[in-house]
Simulated scan of single mutants.
Amino acid sequence: MEIRYASHPNEVKSFDTSRLRKEFLIESLFTENQLNLTYTHVDRFIVGGVLPVNGSVKLDADKKEMGADFFLERREIGIINIGGAGTVTVDGTSYDMETKDCLYIGLGAQDVTFSSKDSSSPAKFYFNSAPAHKQYPTVKASISEANPKHLGSIANSNERTIYQFIHGGGIQSCQLVMGLTMLKPNNMWNTMPCHTHNRRAEVYFYFDMPEDGVVFHYMGEPQETRHLVVRNEQSIISPSWSIHSGVGTSNYTFIWGMAGENQIFDDMDMVAMKDLR
Score class of each variant (00 low, 15 high):
Ala259Asp: 04
Gln135Leu: 10
Met192Gln: 03
Arg74Gln: 00
Lys274Asn: 02
Phe30Ile: 08
Asn198Glu: 07
Pro122Leu: 06
Val230Tyr: 01
Ala201Gly: 03
Ile166Thr: 06
Ala109Asn: 09
Leu276Glu: 12
Glu73Leu: 11
Phe70His: 03
Lys13Glu: 04
Pro239Glu: 11
Asn262Gly: 00
Met219His: 10
Tyr95Arg: 15
His150Gly: 10
Asp69Ser: 14
Glu76Phe: 14
Tyr218Trp: 14
Tyr104His: 09
Ile171Gly: 05
Cys102Ser: 08
Met258Ser: 13
Ile80Pro: 03
Tyr206Ile: 10
Ile105Lys: 03
Pro222Cys: 13
Ala201Thr: 02
Ser18Thr: 08
His41Glu: 04
Ser115Leu: 03
Ala141Trp: 07
Met66Pro: 04
Asn187Phe: 15
Val230Leu: 00
Gln172Ala: 12
Glu145Ala: 10
Ser121Arg: 10
Arg75Ala: 08
Glu98Tyr: 00
Glu73Arg: 04
Gln234Val: 00
Ile243Cys: 09
Thr191Lys: 07
Gly152His: 01
Gln234Phe: 01
Ser240His: 00
Leu29Glu: 11
Phe30Ala: 01
Pro52Gly: 09
Lys124Gln: 06
Asn251Ile: 02
Ser119Met: 06
Leu276Ser: 07
Val177Ser: 08
Ser119Trp: 06
Gly152Trp: 08
Val50Lys: 08
Cys194Leu: 05
Ser153Arg: 07
Pro222His: 02
Arg19Ile: 00
Tyr218Arg: 10
Ser173Trp: 01
Tyr126Ile: 12
Glu233Arg: 01
Gly260Asp: 04
Phe254Gly: 12
Val229Leu: 01
Asn36Trp: 15
Gly48His: 05
Leu35Gln: 13
Ala132Phe: 11
Ser119Asn: 15
Gly108Pro: 08
Cys174Thr: 13
Thr225Glu: 04
Ile77Arg: 12
Tyr204Ile: 14
Ile77His: 15
Asn33Lys: 11
Gln263Ile: 00
Ala130Thr: 13
Met192Trp: 12
Phe207Glu: 08
Gly92Tyr: 01
Ala123Arg: 04
Val90Ser: 03
Trp241Phe: 09
Thr89Asp: 03
Ala259Tyr: 12
Arg21Trp: 02
Ser245Gln: 10
Ala259Arg: 08
Gly55Phe: 09
Thr161Lys: 12
Ser235Ala: 02
Val42Pro: 03
Phe207Pro: 07
Met219Ser: 12
Leu151Ser: 04
Tyr206Glu: 11
Met182Pro: 07
Glu211Lys: 12
Val47Trp: 01
Asp111Lys: 13
Asp118Ala: 02
Phe254Arg: 12
Phe265Ile: 15
Leu25Met: 05
Ile255Asn: 15
Tyr252Ile: 06
Ile80Ser: 05
His195Leu: 15
Asn156Glu: 14
Leu151Glu: 04
Lys140His: 11
